[in-house]
């Protein structure tokens, strides 16, 4: 129900801005024009333990969506549903429908490898490969079969620029990536994900292992990137969600309690449980 409210709201703003009745029609007819990720009645199980309960949400194209909630509430599980990383864990099971770009990603004929190229991921702990900076960025294009040196150089440069790391590393591309600082390593991982040219970036608490200054740089970067990518970020840090996200979802015990515009969710939450959490009554 919350979902419909938000959609209505967006439609109204569209009407106000464009005064174009045609547009309302198209957005209604073809929701996927602005719904990059659409999840319906998602239930997720680790063996016999249910981790997600009936999650329904639509994430708009571009912008930042933040997922908040206490530890073990299913935020990361939800995130890993979107690029099917949970497939790697034996005994997991999923019910419901998850569509990206209008395609059901759990359909039997889905190419998981292609899906993961479209939906990039950045992890909690920076995990550059024990290779050079260049080889880390070139990893994705290379496994895709790209051998052309000139093109690889271009991709490495544009990806590093995209992750605001180019100026710091351009003179030492052949040095080991593990010699970089934690914050730089995390931006390297973002650059590595960008090199595959995804449209969605999933970030699983990307700043929780990084110092405050480096965190700020990554937050700035996320704001820059969100004009070209749809970013879905899991964070423990409510201030971070408030600072950088356009929409926020609040997870509690495997349920998505509330989903809405960040400004609204943090000022006038509709659910008592959301209010309790963001005001620090628990969690």
């Amino acid at each position: 129900m919350i979902q419909t409210n938000t959609n209505l709201k967006i439609d109204q703003t569209l009407v106000q801005k464009t005064i174009n009745p045609e547009l309302i029609k198209t957005t209604q007819d073809n929701e996927c024009d602005y719904c990059e990720v659409k999840v319906e009645n998602l239930n997720f199980f680790y063996g016999s333990i249910q981790a997600l309960f009936n999650v329904t949400v639509k994430v708009r194209e571009k912008g930042v969506a933040a997922l908040i909630g206490p530890s073990g509430c299913g935020k990361s599980t939800f995130l890993r549903v979107l690029n099917r990383m949970n497939d790697l864990i034996p005994g997991t099971r999923l019910e419901g429908k998850v569509s990206i770009h209008g395609e059901n990603i759990y359909a039997p004929n889905t190419d998981v490898v292609n899906l993961r190229k479209k939906v990039g991921m950045v992890f909690q702990h920076p995990n550059p490969f024990p290779k050079s900076i260049f080889d880390n960025i070139a990893y994705g294009p290379r496994i895709d079969g790209l051998k052309d040196k000139v093109k690889l150089n271009e991709i490495v440069e544009s990806s590093l620029k995209g992750a605001a790391l180019w100026d710091e590393v351009k003179d030492r591309l052949n040095e080991p990536a593990l010699a970089l600082s934690g914050g730089q390593q995390q931006r390297l991982c973002i650059a590595r994900a960008l090199a595959v040219k995804p449209s969605i970036l999933l970030m699983d608490e990307p700043t929780s292992a990084i110092d405050p200054l480096a965190t700020q740089r990554i937050e700035d970067l996320i704001r820059e990137l969100c004009s070209n990518y749809t970013i879905i970020i899991v964070t423990h840090n409510m201030q971070q969600a408030a600072r950088i996200s356009d929409h926020t979802g609040f997870f509690l015990q495997g349920e998505m309690v509330e989903w809405g515009e960040t400004s609204k969710l943090f000022t006038k939450p509709e659910e008592q449980r959301t209010e309790d959490y963001i005001t620090g009554r628990f969690g």
């Binding site: 990383m85 993961r116 992890f123 995990n127 550059p128 490969f129 496994i143 590595r192």
Partner: peptide, 26 residues
Amino acid sequence: PRAYREGSFALGATRWQVVRTVVLPR
């Protein structure tokens, strides 16, 4: 480390690519 495997899978590597480029060298 699992982190290397996951990093590689997340970039769209097939299982064999993960083994060949990340796991075996280590």
